[in-house]
Amino acid sequence: MTASAIPGEPIDLQIADVLREVRFPTNKDGLVDAAREAGASNEVLGMLDGMPEQDYVDIASVTRLISGNYGPGLGI
């Protein structure tokens, strides 16, 4: 997938695409950097930047917080 295709995707797919590229474990800054490099939308960057400063061990640890904070429509 090319980075330019990501902003045209629904938000949950953008996040899923970004998380597939992340090397875990990582922290919030690593998530935001990966999203920025992937060309994610400002909405995705804002969501990830709003996450708590902590270490994330895997995709599930990130998606639990995103789904809990932003509602069931983001069941990644």
Rank of each mutant, 00 (worst) to 15 (best):
D33T: 15
V32D: 09
N42S: 08
I66P: 02
D12K: 15
T2Q: 09
Q54E: 08
R36C: 00
D12Q: 13
T63I: 11
V44E: 11
I59W: 03
A3S: 14
D49L: 00
S41D: 06
D55N: 04
L13D: 15
D58N: 07
R64E: 13
E21M: 14
P52S: 07
S61W: 00
I11F: 11
G39R: 08
D58C: 00
A34Y: 01
V44F: 09
A60S: 09
R20K: 15
F24A: 03
I76P: 00
K28M: 09
T63P: 00
M1C: 08
V44K: 10
G30Y: 10
P10M: 09
P7T: 12
E43F: 13
E9G: 01
S41R: 09
G73N: 13
G73K: 12
N27F: 13
S41G: 06
S41L: 05
I6H: 08
I6S: 10
Q54S: 06
A5S: 10
L74P: 03
S61V: 01
R23K: 08
A3R: 07
L19H: 06
L31K: 07
A35C: 02
R23T: 10
V18T: 06
K28R: 15
T26E: 03
A5Q: 10
G30C: 07
G50I: 01
G50P: 01
D29Y: 10
P25D: 11
L45M: 13
D33I: 13
A40Q: 05
P72F: 05
G8N: 13
T2P: 12
P10Y: 11
A40W: 08
P72Y: 04
G50M: 04
P25Q: 11
V44W: 10
G73F: 13
D17R: 10
N42C: 01
I11A: 15
G73H: 12
I15H: 11
G46E: 12
N69R: 15
A38D: 02
G73Y: 12
E9R: 11
D58M: 00
E43L: 07
P72M: 13
L48D: 01
T26L: 04
R23G: 02
A35Q: 03
T26Q: 01
P52G: 09
N42M: 05
T63C: 04
L19N: 06
A35T: 04
M1A: 12
G73E: 12
D29Q: 14
G39A: 14
D17W: 04
V62G: 01
L19E: 15
G75W: 00
Y70N: 07
D17C: 05
D29P: 00
S4C: 05
T2A: 10
N42A: 11
E9A: 13
M47C: 09
D33M: 12
I6C: 08
L65A: 14
G50H: 10
G46F: 06
I15K: 04
G68D: 09
L48M: 02
I59Y: 02
L48I: 15
V22R: 06
G68M: 04
A38E: 04
V57I: 03
A16E: 14
V62S: 03
A16N: 09
V22C: 12
G68V: 11
P72V: 03
Q54V: 01
A16D: 14
G75H: 02
